[in-house]
Design a protein around this nucleic acid. Structure first.
Lengths: 347, 347
DNA sequence: CTGTTAGCGCTTTCAT
DNA sequence: ATGAAAGCGCTAACAG
């Protein structure tokens, strides 16, 4: 049963074999392979070594290297769900940056919340740092993690007292959305917010409020519905808004999942978007332009967020930041106007 | 710059330390930790060891173990794109199965096609096996890979001459879709196929043909449009079908991306689904029920495919299959009827 | 039932 | 400018 393992992984040339072929010591090969700057090698010898490396198709054994150096070159990332397109983009950015810096990214989806165990087996040696892009993980657990001094990074979320985080400018994004609606002539603008214990939910709510404020539009509390970031919850929240005696003429959804649900609720009532109701959502993902009608969105720099988070995490791992990074806000929220928003029906 | 690495990864107890605390040799600890079945240990000693493990929070160093055993416990997976929801589901299944068997899954998205280099650095030691869920990779490259004898597995695709693959019953799924349309009373049924050099595209085309055949519906070649698995191509193909002098009354889209594009093309013409045109697509992903109208789909066992692929790959790695697996077809295609299909407009 | 030992492949200090 | 040697933490064959 195990007889194959040796064959499968090894059979690759080792340093020693390369050394023998090049007639030098393996330590020299190691230095050449690693481009040791403090190495003064005869060009001829170097060539001989490089040729041997080429001939034997030598590739360093990572386990050995990692063992020796006490590293693993692996990063972990926790997301709530692989099918969530918001996270797809973050992962993509994280992946690219990790690869660029020679790290591997292990992505775990955390279905069951409250799984505090999820990171401890991870951090206890396997991986060098952890990206947490998951609003369902309790603040408490993250504070606990912080005590361990292990490198980690919050992505698209924050926790009071933790300043290793990368977020987007949610406030700006939300304000952009709200002001777009106002500019279209809406006054009765609802907001289906995300959970208001999350940074994204809160910032977008704040952006909505500030947007209204700056244009002197009355804030009507009942127009704000707090919702989880799910299609189902978005649907329910929209229904509540539609049942209001004086329903809004436009709605700003805090997230694409919510937005999807809200659109459906509107259309299930036989209402037409944008004639009867304008709608705008946060996150421009691959299918927003194909919805009916094509959705006006706020595009957040999700890919960049993933990249930046990995960059900072690696910096922390390598001690470049005194182990404690600074919170980073990635700008670049932009409005993408399509057909789900229009002026309100004239009275 | 590197001073932290030691602290970050180690500072974990080693076998030796546990051994010292438990007053035994480290090899005994190793055996206990690994549940060596051929170990006849005094219950008391075992307890002493387990207590020490607990106290020092010992966790095996994977690099050391892997180095010793000549393994890496890592699997690679190549997908075309993280945002494609079809792959999200496959990844999810693969991830679960890998975790269950103690393997880590590294997922790479391969944007630039033709990157034959992509697997060679991977397979040359870092990972023990590779899942290829990517129809853009040339058959040639895969045949090349096969020669290396490295464990790999094709997921949701095939290559002539390679029998390590896991696919779904695409033929059945397509037949289900086609027959559903026929049962609704359609005779002029179009098919926007996937690329006909891919197994999925071909099988679904075949299912469509067989479905028509079994119910004695004439096959009209011009009703078949070959398309890439993209929204844009689906859109274009649908436009061609709509421009036909005698356009179809129903269309079966080979894939969800195509379907999305086709729906948009239909609606952009001012036509109503399903009144003017019925549409059904392969792949039931998270947003299909929220489309307008909710989409009738064929649900393929994508999650299971991911699981099964990893299971077989690991079996191959461990030499359980004489290194060469058998092609596996996962059944379980099922029709999910929603509102995008209805009887054709009566003449 | 438990300990001794060798060595996986690599890096790195120290010696030449 | 290159080599020798030690050792990272673990496992497994062999001894006792």
């Amino acid at each position: 049963m195990l007889f194959c393992i040796g064959r499968c992984i090894h059979q690759l040339a080792t340093l020693k074999e390369v050394a023998k072929l090049a007639k030098v010591d393996s330590s020299v090969v190691s230095r050449v392979v690693n481009n040791d700057p403090a190495l003064n090698i005869k060009p001829e010898t170097r060539k001989r070594i490089l040729d041997a490396v080429e001939e034997l198709k030598y590739r360093p054994n990572m386990s050995a290297r990692n063992l020796k150096k006490g590293q693993s070159k692996m990063l972990g990332m926790i997301i709530p769900d692989f099918s969530n397109p918001v996270y797809s983009l973050i992962i993509h950015g994280a992946e690219d940056q990790a690869a660029q810096e020679g790290f591997n990214l292990l992505v775990y989806s955390l279905k069951q919340k409250g799984l505090e165990k999820s990171y401890s087996p991870l951090l206890d040696g396997q991986i060098e740092g952890l990206l947490i892009a998951n609003s369902e993980i309790d603040n408490k657990e993250i504070l606990e993690l912080k005590k361990t001094k292990k490198p980690f990074m919050l992505v698209n979320r924050t926790v009071a007292g933790v300043d290793n985080y990368v977020v987007a400018n949610d406030l700006l994004g939300a304000k952009l959305a709200t002001k777009h609606l106002i500019k279209q002539g809406h006054h009765r603008i609802a907001h289906i917010s995300g959970p208001l214990f999350t940074a994204t939910g809160l910032s977008r709510f704040q952006g909505y409020r500030e947007g209204l404020q700056e244009d002197n539009i009355d804030y009507i509390p009942v127009y704000v519905q707090e919702s989880k970031y799910t299609v189902e919850n978005g649907y329910e929240s929209m229904e509540i808004l539609l049942d209001l005696p004086d329903p809004p003429t436009a709605v700003f959804a805090s997230n694409i999942m919510i937005c999807l649900g809200a659109m459906k609720a509107i259309q299930d009532r036989g209402l037409t978007i944008p004639k009867d109701m304008s709608i705008i959502g946060v996150h421009d993902v691959f299918f927003t332009s194909t919805l009916q009608p094509p959705l006006t969105t706020v595009k957040m720099p999700l890919y960049e967020m993933g990249r930046e988070a990995v960059k900072k995490l690696i910096a922390i791992i390598q001690g470049k930041e005194g182990e404690t990074g600074q919170g980073v806000t990635i700008d670049g929220a932009s409005l993408i106007v399509r057909s789900s928003t229009s002026p309100p029906p004239s009275k």
